[in-house]
Design a binder for these strands. Sequence first.
DNA 1: GCGGATCAC
DNA 2: TATGGTGATCCGC
Length: 772
Amino acid sequence: MDNTKEKKKCKDDLLLRMGLNDNKAGMEGLDKEKINKIIVDATKGSRFYGNELKKEKQVNQRIDSMMQQKSQITSQQLRKAQLQVDRFAMELERNRNLNNTIVHVDMDAFYAAVEMRDNPELKDKPIAVGSMSMLSTSNYHARRFGVRAAMPGFIAKRLCPQLIIVPPNFDKYRAVSKEVREILAEYDPNFLAMSLDEAYLNITQHLEERQSWPEDKRRYFNKAGNSVKTGIAPNTMLAKVCSDKNKPNGQYQILPSRKAVMDFIKDLPIRKVSGIGKVTEKMLMALGIVTCTELYQQRALLSLLFSETSWHYFLHIALGLGSTDLARDGERKSMSVERTFSEISHTEEQFSLCRELCTELARDLQKEGLKGRTVTIKLKNVNFEVKTRASTVPSALSTAEEIFAIAKELLRTEVNAGSPHPLRLRLMGVRMSTFSNEDDKKHQQRSIIGFLQAGQQALSSPGCSLDKTDKTEFVKPLEMSPKKSFFDKKRSERISSHQDSPRCEIVDQQALQPSQPSQALKKMSESLEASENSNNCQTFTCPVCFRDQEGISLEAFNEHVDACLDGPSASENSEMPSFSHASSADTGQKEYAHPSITLCEKQDHEDGEITSADGVDLVEAEDSSLKAASMDTLGSNHSKEEYPDIPNQSCPSSLADEAVRILSKQESIQPCTDEVVTGQALVCPVCNQEQKTSDLTLFNVHVDICLNKGIIQELRNKDINSVNQPKESSRNTDRLQKAARRTKRPGLKTKCSTSKKTKPPSPRHTLDIFFK
DNA sequence: GCGGATCAC
DNA sequence: TATGGTGATCCGC
């Protein structure tokens, strides 16, 4: 019955997982069908397979509930979401950075290649590195038989009986990797190694310096021939996908133009993107999304069905955006030891194994001088079901006995819970986290804050001082490595956004900006200053009515903004007269264009003018990409960089799209010049009224509000009944509202953080392309 | 903070 | 005979 279907699906999935769906079986190897059959025969009926089925079912349930949620989304919700998402997309677009040249280096079948190098006899034979239980990699001969990484060796042997399985020799791979890294360091001393065989390089600076080199010094990078694959692109996400393209010399380049990026992205299957795994792919596929174009088209829907972190991530992918700086991973957050073994069901044995693992872990921890407060044990039973149990203690631990004391109790609880049946384990692990380093820093923060605030606290009234924990939370994102991963940033955003106060968003903004480590302290004190300001009364400019609010606290100011937001939309029509009586006295004074908004004057270049990197060496590619980069700066044909480049609009009738059209039209009518915008009037594309502010952020807030008002009005006019419908998904609605708040507030944070300082006019021409 | 899940390598 | 180990992150409690 249904079960057989389920099993069939799971088989397919297993095959997919093993990369056989796109198997290019050669003459020498096996055809796809045979490979599939062998794998299925070897797999079915096993406990492993049973567990795979179970997991599969869970994923299907997730999908079902997602589809259920989808069916309850109203068209109004979708339109509203479209607005929100497009607003964010514009923001992302404005900050698109094409100035970097990122290279992703990936060594092909690295372990196998090293083994073949050291033992030429293996060269013409199918080999794999690993064990009968698990293979790490295989060479191309073996791949013709369907032998892949992450496949158990015993199955590989069935596929290819003559397969030679070489036990891994990590010391050797490390040594080779080190040699390669020395070369990489010449191109980018700060390159980011992801593993022994993979790294990202930012060669932007190298390319600049290289220009002045004598000809003979420019030596070739890619000596290894086809065994090294590289991807050259304006950001890491694209570079990673590129290196997988494996074009002629194992090299592929996306030129630093928006058009080149979008062309590349267009038909790219989302699964190719790092971060989109099997499950995400399946969930998105259920929504009809396979390619990045589809991902973009469904952006509004995705924002309603997925978490903010997720849809932001999806939107980044859909726009071809990614990290442009190679953020070093910060300090480690956990350390663990785990081991798989043949079934152990004797309790005493389990405890002694646990002790061994704790001893190993303690040794590793001590090597790095780490102490942690959270101990987690991991258990996998013979049916492959995994459980973790954790306990956090007040003081940091590092010795084997200390760790075991906790791990033992966790294990005991599980043993007792299963009693009288013994646990039938096939894996056990112990992990340490919540390192005291983090705590130390928290303490440090507290003392720094205490020190910096001491003077002020003495002066301020008791009711005005910040809560201590609050301050710690507030500073934390800054204290962390200034360079953070996408997810780190998102997490900071989320943490901060829980506190509905502009001072948090100051942190957000800074956390999102790349900054030099040396600036961290300065920024921290700025933020502290800002947070202090939040308690002091001062002057703010309301982004809604553009009136100065003098001598009020931030809280009071927020109330004012809220009132402004609520007031007019409830009582006024879409002409929004409230925007026309802006006080012009202060505009232009407080303007501070954020450094991040710097891309507008970047020029696109003719793609055709750049020699294709295909078939040429990396050095040439570098040079041409440098050429491209300099042309990009010097060129003058800006109008190519238009928003409509983005793949099809899924909802052409939405206001947001209308706005986008208007905005783009405006841009093409008024070609971008390098003129500084100061003093230039900004006309709102929605209400068509000139705004008496030259602060871009404020202006954007205005446009945002206009758009929202438009929607509200539209809903009033067209769909009065449904506005009063019961909330079908209050969670989503709440999220939208929260998100809407967040995007409105940024106008405030710049004001707050700079209100005491007069920032010099930015030397950059700092205007986003839409509003020129 | 916990536990399950997902993802990458 | 037989499907890994390590680290990170996210989400919903």
